[in-house]
């Protein structure tokens, strides 16, 4: 009987303490408006504050010499769960007269992409990355099929 009563009142005490703990947290949020994370998007386009891990679309960075790091190994194409990436390869003859594989077109279907990040993880040479652009609306679906490598771009030296 004593143990039952003790248990009974401990239960009540613990319940009240844990409820008050919850109310303290929500009360803190209620009174501290600087914690608000909502962004009033169209108005604050200039000062938009996107989180670091936000994923908008896949891009392929090019340096000032119009060179990229993609070797055309198709690891990303294999990693993609829904066939967003299609790599068309070509063979280039380099200065020494040897044939070498290079990409012709890196096709990226933005309309199929779920931003799962698997291609970026799979890339051995860090040739592609996620950009933070997100205003993707267009009037024609075909505009969403993108070619990621720029015209006349080359593979950067020293990347195999």
């Amino acid at each position: 009987m004593i143990t039952f009563l003790k248990q009974y009142f401990t239960d009540i005490y613990e319940a009240i303490v844990s409820l008050l703990k919850g109310m303290k947290l929500t009360g803190y949020y209620f009174t501290h408006h600087k914690e608000i994370i909502t962004q009033e998007y169209p108005e604050n386009r200039a000062t938009l504050n996107l989180p670091e891990r936000f994923r908008g679309e896949v891009v392929m960075p090019h340096d000032e010499n119009n060179e990229h790091a993609c070797t055309g190994c198709s690891a990303c194409e294999l990693a993609c769960p829904n066939g967003t990436i299609k790599i068309l390869n070509k063979f280039e003859v380099n200065a020494e007269g040897k044939k070498k594989k290079a990409i012709d077109t890196f096709v990226y279907h933005l309309e199929l992409c779920t931003m799962c990040n698997l291609c970026i993880v799979a890339c051995p040479t860090d040739a592609i990355k996620m950009a933070q652009t997100f205003e993707h609306s267009v009037f024609d679906r075909s505009l969403l099929t993108k070619k990621l490598n720029q015209p006349n771009s080359k593979l950067r030296e020293g990347i195999e």
């Binding site: 929500t26 949020y29 209620f30 408006h33 914690e35 608000i36 994370i37 909502t38 009033e40």
Partner: peptide, 13 residues
């Protein structure tokens, strides 16, 4: 408004 502020949102605006 209360629900929004408690959930760190702005609410109707």
């Amino acid at each position: 408004k209360v629900s929004a502020w408690i959930q760190i949102r702005l609410g109707p605006n």
